[in-house]
Write a protein that binds this DNA or RNA. Structure first.
Length: 284
DNA sequence: CACGTTAGTTACACTCACTG
DNA sequence: CAGTGAGTGTAACTAACGTG
């Protein structure tokens, strides 16, 4: 890895920026977190799976990922790429967003990928340069400057999606389209017992092939993905309702309370009740 | 206090998803 | 296609808490 600049903590934030230029192959990453993510590609090609489908990311693309949206990157056939990743917590810019709620609207836009024209690229790269410069060394007003340039970048994205209606890019291949359909199926029916074999039959594809392709395209295995979707629903129910843990477990599609507990702990590091209590404390 | 209810943990056996 | 291990269900236990 060369030319790496990092600032902040990738998982806790409140702000993290990383500039990477890689020539070789790149390990895949896949996760979900409470921060917003911005991804800008200078060179190369990447596959990016976001929420329920995959995108081929090309140079000059700016990718916007909302809080808690599942996402995964992997190499396309072409190896090597240069990119900037920014993660930031809502808390970092909360007062500003309060004043100007439209700043985050690009994150809920129909397509998470903004394909920038040349002037737009120059504008974004200029802001990124400033952010990278600020992140490099500690200096007077660093935090302020980072918030300032980040706000500038967000304003740019908000105006861009407002003025340039962005069409959703084509699916990379029919297989990608199919996996995307299956992912949406899982997102809809996660609360019922889902099995790979039945899913495969329903979508007319062999179970082994589905297992392989699902992992390759989404970055998650079938079971991993299903569990994440179920835990997300469980988290929502725990916070927004007063349902008992066993009821949450059933509504989220878990076969048993034991299994719910195991999976929940594995993904969140705490028990369901703890999660609810922690969320309650944060409310006040 | 004794009891019931709810939540969380562990052991063990099995099955099914993943992988080579 | 087949072997393997991760994931899952059942059962049995403990912990925490409220209630008569």
């Amino acid at each position: 890895m060369s030319g790496t600049i990092t600032y902040g903590n990738e998982n806790e934030g409140p702000f993290y920026i990383q500039h990477i230029h890689r020539t070789g192959s790149f390990e895949r990453t896949q996760h979900m977190h409470d921060m917003f993510e911005l991804y800008y590609l200078y060179e190369g090609e990447r596959m990016y799976f976001i929420r329920d489908r995959s995108y081929l990311i090309l140079p000059g693309d700016l990718v916007l990922i909302n809080q808690r949206d599942l996402h995964a990157t992997s190499d396309s056939e072409k190896l090597g790429h240069a990119r900037v990743v920014i993660n930031f917590a809502e808390s970092l810019i909360a007062p500003t967003v309060n004043e100007a709620p439209f700043l985050l609207q690009a994150f809920t836009h129909a397509s998470p990928v903004l394909r920038l024209d040349l002037p737009a690229r120059r504008a974004v790269e200029g802001i990124l340069d400033k952010l990278l410069h600020e992140a490099k060394d500690e200096m007077l007003g660093q935090d302020f400057a980072i918030r300032h340039y980040l706000t500038e970048l967000l304003l740019f994205t908000a105006r861009f999606v407002q003025t340039q209606p962005v069409a959703s890019p084509e699916h990379v291949s029919p297989l990608h389209r199919k996996i995307s359909t299956i992912v949406r199926h899982i997102n809809t029916y996660f609360d019922s017992p889902l099995r790979l074999e039945e899913l495969a039959e329903h979508f007319d594809i062999s179970p082994a092939y589905l297992s392989r392709m699902f992992k390759e395209i989404t970055g998650f295995s079938f079971v991993e993905y299903l569990n994440i979707v179920r835990v997300q629903e469980a988290q929502r129910l725990l916070v927004t309702t007063k349902l008992k843990v066993i009821e949450v477990s059933e509504l989220a599609g878990f076969g048993s309370l034991v299994q719910f507990g195991r999976v929940f702990r594995q993904l969140t590091g705490m028990t369901p009740l703890r999660y609810r209590q922690q969320a309650e404390r944060l409310q006040h």
